[in-house]
């Protein structure tokens, strides 16, 4: 197992390097000047402009800049934002907790809803409940998150006035009242993500259960006199969850990118919103850093998925 882990870790290094080259190449090949606002200002003399470019390392050849950028990246230094002049690392760390809170809670609720629903609909296949739940799940994974979000705003913020319209980013939790306020403003963004995530996962759980329910080992368990609930819980569910574990880990990065849209609908101050703001401001260092952080997340959770899969399924050998 340890050797497998090390090998798997080593494989992800070239992947990350490849991604960093792609992101860097995209930026380097892009037309236009990263300092365009500055460059178009006629009051800035040419030599000052040249000095700024030198100090930012922009006049060096491409491979040198890449190695330089990578070296800084490895030291955890992501550079400075053009727009706010603050450190990119700090900007990201500032906003990461908000994203993690929304995404994490949505993810956990999604799993908690999807697994029982998937099991129940599979065991009661073709029942009314099954039809309703699978149709809802189908809608959940077909309807884009920004529409679900707008509908929620329309119903719960505009019509019913249960939740605030806009997320208040200045709110700090210091007593019970502000905690309630924080929860109230987080409910809608979390609900949007939960709906989509639970819908996707439930379909997988249900399909896996349906695949496993008629298997020989389940029939054996029944014929030795186990109650159906015990067959489902102890035998079928455990086997069905093995591929689902992989999906749970593999799905996490897409939940993070999905949060980009959800955060911008509800103006939650997370890294997704930071990405959109920086793109609008053409704040290249921030965009690059956030994009690369997403890539790291994807690679990391691919690794987690593989390891979990190997750990959960004894049929898979670590070779």
């Amino acid at each position: 197992m340890a050797r497998y882990l090390v090998r798997r870790l080593l494989i992800s290094i070239p992947t990350l390097l490849g991604i960093s080259v792609i992101i860097f190449a995209v930026l380097a090949l892009a037309p236009g000047d990263p300092l365009s606002q500055f460059a178009n200002n006629p009051e800035v003399p040419e030599e000052v402009r040249q000095r700024v470019r030198d100090s930012l390392g922009l006049s060096q050849p491409m491979p040198v800049r890449y190695v330089h950028w990578l070296g800084q990246l490895l030291q955890g230094d992501l550079g400075f934002s053009y727009a706010t002049r603050s450190s990119v690392t700090q900007l990201i760390l500032q906003r990461l907790p908000n994203t993690l809170a929304v995404v994490g809670v949505a993810y956990l609720i999604g799993i908690a809803v999807a697994v029982p629903l998937g099991v129940f609909t599979a065991t009661k296949r073709y029942s009314v409940f099954d039809h309703v739940a699978t149709t809802l799940a189908f809608i959940g994974f077909s309807v884009p998150s920004f529409f679900t979000g707008l509908i929620l705003i329309l119903i719960f913020a505009v019509q019913l006035r249960w939740f605030p319209f806009i997320y208040d980013s200045t709110l700090t939790v210091h007593d019970f009242g502000s905690l309630v306020q924080q929860i109230r403003q987080s409910i809608m963004p979390i609900a949007v993500l939960t709906f989509i995530y639970a819908a996707t996962l439930m379909r997988y759980v249900r399909a896996e259960m349906l695949e496993n329910l008629p298997q020989d080992y389940a029939r054996t368990a029944r014929s030795k006199g186990l109650r159906e609930s015990a067959v489902v819980r102890r035998h079928v569910l455990r086997n069905s969850l093995i591929p689902v574990i992989t999906l749970v880990a593999l799905g996490l990065p897409s939940v993070f990118t999905g949060a980009v849209i959800t955060e911008s609908i509800f103006s939650v101050p997370g890294i997704g919103q930071l990405l959109i703001l920086s793109i609008v401001n053409a704040d290249t260092p921030v965009v690059m850093a956030v994009t690369f952080s997403f890539a790291v997340l994807v690679v990391f959770f691919n690794l987690v998925a593989d390891v979990l899969y190997a750990a959960a399924d004894p049929r898979i050998r670590y070779s």
Binding site: T15, I19, P31, P253, T257, V260, I261, I276, F294, A295
Partner: peptide
């Protein structure tokens, strides 16, 4: 297949936004 694996690991939406931002005008 290595290439395929690497593309699977690319962060889709952020990369899409990045490229559009950079190449849109030209």
């Amino acid at each position: 297949m290595r290439l395929t694996d690497m593309f699977i690991s690319l962060p889709g939406l952020p990369l899409l936004l990045l490229v559009i931002m950079l190449f849109r005008d030209s």
